[in-house]
Nucleic acid binder design. Structure first.
Lengths: 212, 212
DNA sequence: CCGTTACGCTACGACTCGTAGCGAAAGCTT
DNA sequence: AAGCTTTCGCTACGAGTCGTAGCGTAACGG
């Protein structure tokens, strides 16, 4: 968040209700208009605030949409299924459910595209969206190592690289499936993906050990 | 392409030189301005043509950028390294090299974002960019099956699903690494990725069988 | 009650968009 | 060589958006 009133501050405080109304209006506008046709004037009207209020709180369209989309990822939780495969499937299904929403599709990819030319924007995305997801990978990996499903820790630098690699594979696959292939990442797909991730391509032909 | 002069047509033909100049100017504008600040008027000036000529050939910014970016993928070739791992690494490195270019980063993701609200645009992307990449997966997989590195074909519908899955994993990982994590998909990363893809997470700690 | 800050509203110049209309140019056909 | 057809470059235009400035009012804290 960025609109927190600095602690020992005088004067009229910023309306917290306006913040939530603006972010909700932004998501609604993303659904109806998409990124390119979304205008800040329209968002202001939807939220019931003045256009100038928007410009007082956000630098521009990019920052506003990042904050609006970031809230969608608040609900991400790491399930405790007891097995690595179960944890992966659970997280991926949650991630896929978020990405299936139209405001996430059009908003997230657009700001990522913009972030290729804006270092500050990329950092904002990283801090408010990506880092939260990556923490799930770290925790899930640690659990699996504790159960002996994954080889134990090596050097810490090597571990960081591995986490980054896993994260790029998991998040990238779901994003590509949802946005580029434009097919749902449903349970069947997630099962297949998880099997490839855990056992590799060669093992992908075999059935998993436990049919229901 | 869309500006081919219909076969038995009379009148002045469209300038092919204008086409290439416009697409090159579009890529240059993508590098300098990025997607959001790119204007068709600016592209026309760079290409040395009138703005109206642009509107006669392309419906809008989206279609123009898709064509401009699609040309970047013309150079994709499937290397014949003799092993599945080598083929995967070769293709991924080529793909990564293309995605490393700024005109690909800002252009490709932006049109993908737009395509979530435009069915025709998504089809245009699929036909001119995605399908070409997917063919490499199909061919590489067939070669590996011929060498016995992958289990042979099952049902054809099952095979299509597998190809789609592999494609989403490979392309998604490279895209996510390059655009979201904003780190280069260099040889070291590609080696690690290929190993996970072929042997799975559990085998990712082991060294590959054949050191040079 | 007073100082300070946020808010809503209006207005503004600058810019981009996509289109229309025109005369000239470049092909093919006869 | 003349005629037909289509494209091209150019200019101009209304419509819409941008981001900001200015003003009076509202909501807090001391």
């Amino acid at each position: 968040m960025q609109s927190r009133t600095p602690a020992g501050r005088t004067g009229r405080p910023r309306s917290a209700a306006a913040d939530t109304a603006i972010l909700a209006a932004t998501r609604a506008a993303l659904v109806e208009l998409g990124w390119s046709k979304l205008t800040l004037g329209d968002v202001a009207t939807r939220a019931g605030v003045a256009k100038t209020t928007l410009y007082r709180r956000w630098a521009g369209k990019n920052e506003l949409v990042v904050d609006a989309v970031a809230e969608l990822f608040d609900e991400l939780r790491l399930p405790d299924s007891g097995t690595l495969a179960g944890d992966v499937e659970g997280v991926v299904l949650q991630f896929a459910a978020i990405l299936a929403r139209p405001e996430a599709k059009s908003g997230l990819m657009a700001v990522v595209a913009e972030s290729t030319r804006d270092e500050a924007l990329r950092e904002r995305i990283r801090a408010s969206i990506v880092e939260r997801q990556k923490r799930l990978v770290v925790e899930g990996r640690a659990r699996a190592q504790g159960r002996g499903e994954l080889p134990p820790e090596t050097a810490s630098e090597e571990a960081a690289r591995t986490v980054d690699l896993i994260f790029d594979i998991v998040a990238g696959a779901v994003v590509h499936r949802t946005l580029v292939s434009a097919e749902p990442a449903d349970e069947e797909w997630v099962r297949g993906f998880t099997q490839v991730l855990l056992t590799g391509l060669a093992g992908a032909g075999e059935e998993p050990a436990s049919p229901p």
